[in-house]
Structure formats: structure tokens, C-alpha cells
Write a protein that binds this DNA or RNA. Structure first.
Length: 354
RNA sequence: UGGGGUGUAGCCAAGAGGUAAGGCACGGGACUUUGACUCCCGCAUUCGUAGGUUCGACCCCUGCCACCCCAG
């Protein structure tokens, strides 16, 4: 069985490749370069990761390739990312990246190479029915990022580290003498990486400064452009020493008047939401029945503890009522639904109800 | 230019003769395959300014400056 492993140069995908090789698969490593950028010295910022991939593949004894999906990434992920920000929302590019790039462009590419399956280092599992399951490591479970996938994509995918904990993965890497065993986990937008987010956005979207106001209309500061802020955000507002001295948080964006609405105090009622409407509902396998309230659990952001919700599907919309008020649920972000350990799917938050 | 008041870090604010609390903001780090949240650490050799008293002053005295209020 031929398997093409998407390798990032990190521990997880390296161990994924190693395990598959040990299990007797015909393994090929493929490094995806999806973002064209060079550092101040003119060196591609992905160069060191590519080097790590080559080192690891050599050590494991598997062939490797590099592919470039920068155009696909830009067209299918990044353009939407930008338009969402323009619309005053806070998108999650990585859920799209998985649907459009890793489990589409990359999957297609692997199939053309004659692969039977692809594999990645995601901490998730699948079962025989093609369902998406949480990873065994509760703390690293990445099903949130894969909720937009369909069963047919999962059926062509292997997740060799999904049943392991992060610590076990590092142990395996260490025991095998893999050079990236202690490499720090990468963060930031997938393929783009960690960086000053405001600065990064500023290079793509024009800024339009305006006022920061309280719900009562009092002007308490100036913002640098609405797209630089997200609901629930505290840092970067620059408002200090007002009122009772507590922190301010973003609760709304008034695009019409180019105003950022802020409140004082982490427990302000406007920071809490009792329900939401999600659009572009997608289900891994079977859609929720139309119009029938379903008691499920949900996450509104990665690594959030499960929240009890009642969901009613209406076409491509999900009407979600929270068991307990949720803090800073943000339009543009994804709500992901679970029944036990099964990730059912989810949608993109469009409206919030207070 | 008569009277009263206030001047402590970017902002708010303790302090009250014994050698500068705290909060917010900000900076750094941790956490994290989105954006956030959260957590930890840091952040006035100096108290409008110039002198004086004192072993010792942000706290007492004097001059000056600035701002505020009430009278004009």
C-alpha cells in the first residue's frame, strides 16, 4: 500500500512517516510549500523546515518530494481570509486550508503519484465508518481544524499519531534518533507561521483608523483599523486608567461608522452570548436532521472545553443555543459539533445572540 | 496676579519624616497549527521645579512654574 505523508518538518508528521514505514507501508514524504516569502536575507522562510523534512526522510529511509500549492492556497484560502477580514469578521484560515489544500490539492496530488492513501501528523482518529474522532491526547486533539472534511476525504487519509499523546510522539522520535524530536511545536496560521499579526494584515489590507467607543457612546480611544481587532480582545487597545481601572475588551464592530465598541471589565454582559447562527453547515458524514433540536457538545474555538448546546439545522444554517452563556463567540470563527468523541461537522458563526 | 486647591510612571492612584502600594496601559515570556482569551515576569534611584530645615523628606518651610475652582 502506497502512502504519501504530508510532512511539515515537525515532530508529529515525522513520527507519522516513521510509524507507517515501520508498519510496512510504501511511504513517500511530501513537503508542501504554500506560502511564498523570503526573509530579510532573501532566504525562503520555509527553507529550514524543508531541510528538516529531507533529514528526517533520509534517516527513516523514504523518498521525498516538495510541492508548491502557493497559488491554490492564495486562491482558495487566503483570498477568503482577506475578504472576511474586510467584512469585519475573524476568519479561521486553517479550517479552510485543511479542506482545500491538505485534503484536496495535496490529496489529488498524492493520488496522481499513485498513492492509495495520504497521511498527516494530525492528532485525530477515524473509524471504519469514515467518522472523524478526537485524538487520544485530549490536550492536542485537532479535530476542530478538520471539521470541514468529508468522509470520502477521511477514508483516503491515515492519522498515525492520532492514538498517541504528544509525549509519546516525542518519545518515539527521540528513541528513533529523529533530529526534530525536540523541535518546538509550530503555531500561527498554517504555512504562514508566527508573526506580528497586525503588521501582517497591514500589508494586505488598508487601515482606516477610527474611534473606540463604549456602548453608551463615550469615546475612549482610537483604533488603527477595525480588521485588526476581534471580539473579546483585550490587548492592544491602549486604554488605561479609566473608570474603575479594569481592562477594556472588544465586544463589537460598527462598520458603518468605523467604530470599535469596547466595554470595561472581563465580566461585562456584552461579552457573553447565549446563542448563535452558523452558516455553511457541513457534516463529515450525515447531516443533522432538518428542524430537529439536537443536544450536542460544541467548541467555538480551538482547545476550548466542550460546551453543551442545542442545535437545530435549517438547511445550511445551524441555530445554536448554549447551555451556558459563552464568552466572545465571534463571527467568522467556526463552531464545531461533537457527539461524544465523534466530530460531526460544524459551521461558520454568522450571527451571535446576547 | 485677590482667595482657595492640585501637581507621584503613558493613564488612574496609595503614600502622609525613615528611605516610592496597587490597577490599567505597555514590553517580554509561557500556552497555542486561526484570531483571541488566560497565565507568568518586567516596568519611577524617583515624587512640577529651585532652595532650606533634618541624621534622614514625596511627606515640614520658602521662592518660582503649571493647571483647576471661586471671586474679579
Amino acid at each position: 500500500m502506497r502512502v504519501v505523508v504530508g510532512m511539515s518538518g515537525g515532530v508529529d508528521s515525522s513520527v507519522a512517516a516513521l510509524l507507517l514505514k515501520q508498519q510496512g507501508y510504501d511511504v513517500t514524504g511530501v513537503f508542501m510549500k504554500n506560502w511564498e516569502e523570503q526573509d530579510e536575507n532573501g532566504v525562503c522562510t520555509a527553507e529550514s523546515d524543508w531541510r528538516d523534512v529531507r533529514d528526517v526522510c533520509d534517516a527513516i529511509g523514504i523518498p521525498y518530494y516538495a510541492v508548491n500549492f502557493a497559488k491554490e492556497y492564495k486562491d482558495r484560502v487566503f483570498s477568503l481570509f482577506l475578504s472576511e477580514y474586510r467584512a469585519g469578521r475573524t476568519p479561521n484560515p486553517d479550517v479552510l486550508c485543511n479542506r482545500e489544500i491538505k485534503f484536496k490539492a495535496f490529496l489529488d496530488f498524492a493520488m496522481q503519484l499513485g498513492a492509495d492513501k495520504i497521511a498527516t501528523g494530525h492528532f485525530v482518529n477515524t473509524n471504519a465508518q469514515g467518522q472523524l474522532l478526537r485524538g487520544a491526547d485530549q490536550n492536542k486533539d485537532q479535530s476542530y481544524f478538520l471539521y470541514m472534511l468529508k468522509a470520502f476525504q477521511l477514508q483516503k487519509s491515515l492519522f498515525p499519531v492520532g492514538h498517541l499523546t504528544k509525549a509519546q510522539v516525542r518519545d518515539i522520535a527521540r528513541d528513533a534518533g529523529i533530529t526534530v524530536a525536540e523541535k518546538k511545536d509550530s503555531t500561527g496560521v498554517c504555512f504562514i507561521g508566527e508573526r506580528d499579526f497586525k503588521q501582517f494584515l497591514a500589508t494586505f489590507l488598508p487601515a482606516q483608523p477610527g474611534a473606540m467607543v463604549t456602548p453608551e457612546g463615550e469615546i475612549v480611544g482610537c483604533h488603527d483599523g477595525l480588521m485588526y481587532y476581534t471580539l473579546g480582545q483585550r490587548r492592544g487597545l491602549g486604554i488605561g486608567g479609566r473608570g474603575d481601572g479594569r481592562s477594556f475588551f472588544v465586544v463589537d464592530k460598527d462598520l458603518q461608522n468605523n467604530r470599535l465598541i469596547v466595554v470595561q471589565g472581563e465580566d461585562h454582559p456584552l461579552l457573553y452570548t447565549t446563542g448563535a447562527v452558523a452558516v455553511q453547515a457541513t457534516f463529515v458524514e450525515e447531516a443533522l436532521p432538518e428542524g430537529v433540536p439536537c443536544k450536542l457538545s460544541a467548541k467555538f474555538r480551538y482547545r476550548q472545553p466542550d460546551q453543551g448546546v442545542t442545535v437545530v439545522r435549517a438547511g445550511e444554517q445551524l441555530h445554536i443555543t448554549f447551555d451556558t452563556p459563552q464568552r466572545a463567540v465571534t463571527p467568522g470563527q467556526s463552531t464545531v459539533l461533537y457527539r461524544g468523541d465523534v466530530c460531526l461537522g460544524g459551521g461558520i458563526i454568522d450571527q451571535i445572540e446576547r
